[in-house]
């Protein structure tokens, strides 16, 4: 069986993006299950500490194209190089971050290779499949698992016939884990100049304003999240007040973001950020599966909801039945009173 490839995004700082390191960690486990190698694809310019950064994740081979035309990312040059590489290496599995880069390049590549691609997976596993229609047994397929259809179902998607089996995964969904600090792989240079053609530069970047998002809910130990049930932008201010005194961040469900209560950067869930804080306070969040996919690993969950039968209460450690606008001020008051 052929190997697992992870497309690694080059960050603004010239290093490798977190989402890619998370995918390498997952990729290493899948490679272990399949007894194959893990290979990283890095397309950039003067990427820093490439080998010392990636080998500890258990990367057997780093395919590296170093060319100033490859950073910042544009679609066509990256796609051409990946297609050239995949054409030669024929990966079994190819993983991409579900970022604005990964979600741009992966479908382009999948279309050219005519292979299956599943977006925004929340879990990846190896398993078998028996196709009743053709009486064919498939061993060791990649199960691409994701909530679908408004979060009412969890779908397991497979690509029995086409290779690579491709999937994208959001940042924070997989855990970043060092495989071994002693692990050493090898570096394989890609000759970008021989692959790239003039046509690959049909799109040129004129201007970029990249700012690190000021909102960092992913790394916050305490998250106060609000849903549609918070009711208004004004009521969300209460969440911000509580977050302020607890040193927490404010998160939100998709419904709250769609209603315009808070910025999209705060969205927790399958199509937002995945978080694992020590404490997650869910205010007026009913708990669709997409939302829970982004927060159910929280150590402690408190749900504040007027509806005792809200699905979120089933995964909460505490359910406070009542109104967010009444309860948050009380939490602020009694926190102040009891903390030093």
């Amino acid at each position: 069986m052929n190997n697992i490839f992870v497309y690694c995004e080059v960050s603004e700082e010239g290093s490798i993006a977190d989402v890619s390191l998370e995918l390498l960690s997952k990729g290493k486990k899948l490679a272990g299950d399949l007894k194959v190698k893990l290979e990283a694809v890095v397309l950039g310019y003067k990427v820093k500490n490439l080998e010392t950064l990636l080998y500890p994740f258990g990367v057997d081979v780093i395919h590296y194209a170093d060319d100033e035309r490859l950073f910042p990312y544009t679609t066509l040059p990256h796609a051409s190089i990946i297609l050239d590489l995949f054409g030669k290496e024929k990966p079994e599995i190819a993983l991409f971050g579900a970022t604005s880069i990964g979600r741009d390049i992966a479908p382009r590549v999948a279309s050219a290779l005519r292979c299956g691609l599943t977006a925004d997976c929340t879990s990846l596993e190896i398993g078998d499949h028996f196709e009743n229609k053709t009486q064919t047994e498939y061993k060791n397929l990649l199960y691409q698992i994701r909530p679908a259809f408004g979060g009412n179902i969890i779908a397991t998607i497979i690509n029995p016939e086409t290779r690579p089996q491709m999937a994208t995964v959001r940042e924070g969904v997989m855990k970043k884990e060092i495989f071994s600090n002693k692990f050493k792989g090898k570096l394989q240079k890609i000759d970008a100049k021989s692959i790239l053609k003039d046509d690959d530069f049909a799109v040129t970047i004129i201007e970029r304003h990249i700012e690190k998002s000021k909102i960092d809910i992913k790394n916050s130990q305490v998250i106060i999240a609000g849903g549609y049930g918070v009711g208004s932008k004004e009521n969300f201010d209460l969440l911000f007040q509580l977050a302020d005194i607890l040193g927490a961040q404010v998160g939100a469900s998709r419904a709250a973001v769609d209603a315009g209560f808070v910025e999209h950067e705060r969205q927790v869930g399958q199509t937002g950020v995945t978080v694992r804080p020590k404490l997650y306070i869910a205010c007026g969040i009913s708990g669709a599966v997409q939302h829970r996919a982004g927060m159910d690993q929280s150590a402690q969950i408190i749900s504040i909801n007027t509806d005792i039968s809200a699905p979120i209460n089933n995964i909460a450690d505490y359910t406070i039945v009542g109104n967010v606008a009444d309860i948050i001020p009380k939490m602020i008051k009694y926190y102040k009173k009891n903390s030093k």
Binding site: R114, I153, T156, I157, I315
Partner: peptide, 16 residues
């Protein structure tokens, strides 16, 4: 369509 739906699960809530 290279992608096939192997399985659909209705969401079952893990009860804590």
């Amino acid at each position: 369509s290279p992608t096939k739906v192997k399985k659909i699960e209705n969401v079952v809530f893990q009860h804590k």
